[in-house]
């Protein structure tokens, strides 16, 4: 079970969180004309990298904030966690 550092609450066990998928996906702007392909890429296509992955976790049994977690998908090492709107270099 992972031990995730929530930037709002501190380190908590994985069972307080819900997984939210790839954090780098950006929703197309509202009212923007886009092709079927672009929309499909946003809705369905996800990379599944082995190694570093920036992903969303929702602290549902805690502060209810969505956070971003940089995790290695093969070793589960967590490098850093960010608040939802924090800028990531």
């Amino acid at each position: 079970m992972l031990y995730i550092f929530c930037p709002h609450c501190g380190s908590r066990s994985q069972n307080e969180f819900a997984y939210g998928g790839d954090a780098t996906v950006k929703r197309p702007e509202l009212n923007k004309e886009i092709s079927d392909q672009e929309w499909d890429n946003f809705v369905y296509l996800r990379k599944s990298p082995r190694g570093k992955h920036l992903e969303l976790w929702h602290h549902i049994s805690g502060c209810r904030q969505w956070i971003k977690v940089e995790r290695d998908t093969s070793t589960h090492e967590i490098f850093k966690t960010y608040k939802a709107t924090e800028l990531i270099e």
């Binding site: 549902i60 209810r64 939802a84 709107t85």
Partner: peptide, 17 residues
Amino acid sequence: AANVLSHLEYYLQLVWP
């Protein structure tokens, strides 16, 4: 109920902060 709340929080916190 629970899913809808998470859904709303997702858009408020991440998409349209």
